[in-house]
Design a protein around this nucleic acid. Structure first.
Lengths: 193, 193
DNA sequence: GTCTATAAACTGATAGAC
DNA sequence: GTCTATCAGTTTATAGAC
């Protein structure tokens, strides 16, 4: 699938393989074969596998920031948080897990430089959820006795775990359960026909 | 670390490496080196890596059943569920993730036979949590408007995700947040000094 | 049970030609 | 940018001796 930029193709492909199979289960040979070049040519674009992984993760972090900017336009904290959960559902529908969750599960095998974008991805996500929850509690949109940090901190692992487990069992029902539990904790009633 | 049974040593070691580094990041060479034999000798005990993985996972499923039997003795549903969460905390304290969570994140790269014990592990865990929640709701120990299945289904992914993310960031605080959110959803107040 | 020897394939990577 | 050629090391596995 050649698009305009070979480098971008490789980033896309690598990201997809990491989200589908894991960092330690893809090789330059896989990449090269799918894009129609030789493995040595991949090294022209990315000197090492570590560098490729780093660039994939950095771009993913940028994409998160872009999403957060888009979601800032939404009319309510509920809508913002639904959009956040929705992005995980999109990933699930592709038969993939979050790139960051995939990297996190392989963290002990990754070299140091990639740790910081992984870290920042989680940090930023959590921080953003905390802000949403806090704003919703202050405006009266949400109602909860628990501290907003506790609620917010439990959402991220839930979503990551739901994606990881859903490919084995449960499919979309896990994510639905997580979403319902979370919004119920915020006192948001489930909207049904 | 030679104990009585070499086969058991290899199972223990393999399990540890999968929980710490992932299935695709350990080799027969690693195993052999640590146990002090050659890789060919490992093949005497386990014909293939797939078979080894399968046996590790089967044993882990047996260990779960044993835990559930032990926890049946506990005096309340709250105690049972705290013990369940506690077992995840033990794993976290070892710097590891759940074997099943690790396998699940690599599911696309694993051959068919290992799928069923992974599946059963999740199935059994969820089923058990549902039973606890249901019993607690019926006895009045818990209080919730959400269906017990929804609550129970959201716990497992939360715990798995918390372990996976905790090695990157947050440490034990993620698991604590998950635990507090879960028990709050059941109307169980946090016990503090 | 463990060893040596061996195999075929793969892995990440480099050098240098086109 | 991509190729060929080549590299050293790893990975999973088998055959057969001790």
């Amino acid at each position: 699938m050649p698009t305009v930029d070979r480098r971008t193709d490789l980033l896309d492909l690598a990201q997809g393989m990491i989200q589908e199979r894991g960092y330690n289960a893809f090789s330059f040979k896989d990449l090269a074969a799918r894009v129609g070049i030789k493995t040595a040519s991949v090294h022209y674009h990315f000197p090492s596998k570590g560098e490729l992984g780093l660039q994939v993760m950095k771009r993913y972090l940028d994409q998160l920031e872009e999403c957060l900017r888009t979601w800032a336009e939404l009319p309510s904290e509920t809508a913002r948080l639904r959009a956040f959960v929705g992005s995980y559902r999109d990933t699930e529908n592709q038969g993939a897990i979050c790139l960051c969750g995939s990297m996190a599960s392989d963290i002990q095998t990754l070299n140091a430089p990639i740790h910081s974008p992984i870290n920042r991805y989680l940090e930023r996500s959590e921080q953003w959820v905390v802000q949403c929850v806090q704003a919703g509690l202050e405006s009266g949109e949400f109602l909860s006795t628990l501290p907003p940090e506790t609620l917010a901190m439990s959402l991220l692992p839930s979503l990551q775990g739901a994606l990881i487990l859903s490919r084995v069992q449960g499919g979309g029902t896990l994510l639905t359960a997580v979403e319902q539990s979370f919004f119920a904790s915020l006192g948001v009633l489930d909207e049904r026909p």
